[in-house]
Design a protein around this nucleic acid. Structure first.
Length: 128
DNA sequence: ATTCTGACGATGT
DNA sequence: AACATCGCCAGAA
C-alpha cells in the first residue's frame, strides 16, 4: 500500500487510512499524524481525521487520538463516552479524556509496520 | 470560483 | 505551560 506518487489524495488515501487503522493492535493507540506520516502525508493529519469521519465500522477509530493522547474524536462517537469506554476495555487507562501513559501504548505504524520502503533500518525501535 | 470549516501538528510568543 | 498563528488539503455551502 505504498503511496503512489500521483494523486494520492483520492479515495485511495482514505482507504489506506482505514487499512492502517485496522492494523492497530488492541490495547494500543496511534495518532492521526502518525498515520499520515506513514502514508506520506506527514503534514496532513487533518486529512486522516477527516478520513475517519467516514470510516467503516471495522475500523477501530477509537484507537486513534491526537498527538497529545487526547480523545479529540470522542465527540463523534454515538455515545461520546464509547471511545473512552472501548479504550478502557482494551486496558488503556483514560483520565480526563486523555490517555494515561500515552507513550507506552503508542503504536507507530512507521516503526511497527516497518515498511522499509526506501531505507532499511538495522534495528527498529522496540515498543514492547 | 471563493470562503469556511475541520476527529491535526509544529512553531512562536 | 497556556495561548495564538500558520500550514495542511479535502469537502461543504
Amino acid at each position: 500500500m505504498v503511496r503512489t506518487k500521483k494523486k494520492q489524495t483520492d479515495k485511495n488515501f482514505f482507504t489506506d487510512v482505514f487499512e492502517v487503522a485496522r492494523l492497530i493492535p488492541p490495547g494500543r493507540v496511534t495518532s492521526y499524524g502518525a498515520i499520515g506520516q506513514y502514508l506520506g502525508l506527514k503534514s496532513s493529519a487533518r486529512m486522516v481525521g477527516w478520513a475517519m469521519h467516514g470510516c467503516p465500522k471495522d475500523v477501530p477509530a477509537h484507537r486513534v487520538v491526537n498527538s497529545k493522547g487526547l480523545l479529540s474524536g470522542k465527540h463523534h462517537f454515538k455515545p461520546p463516552e464509547k471511545m473512552e469506554r472501548l479504550l478502557k476495555k482494551e486496558g488503556i487507562a483514560v483520565v480526563n479524556d486523555k490517555i494515561v501513559h500515552f507513550a507506552d501504548v503508542f503504536w507507530n505504524p512507521s516503526a511497527e509496520l516497518a515498511l522499509d520502503v526506501a531505507k532499511p533500518r538495522k534495528k527498529r525501535p522496540k515498543l514492547g
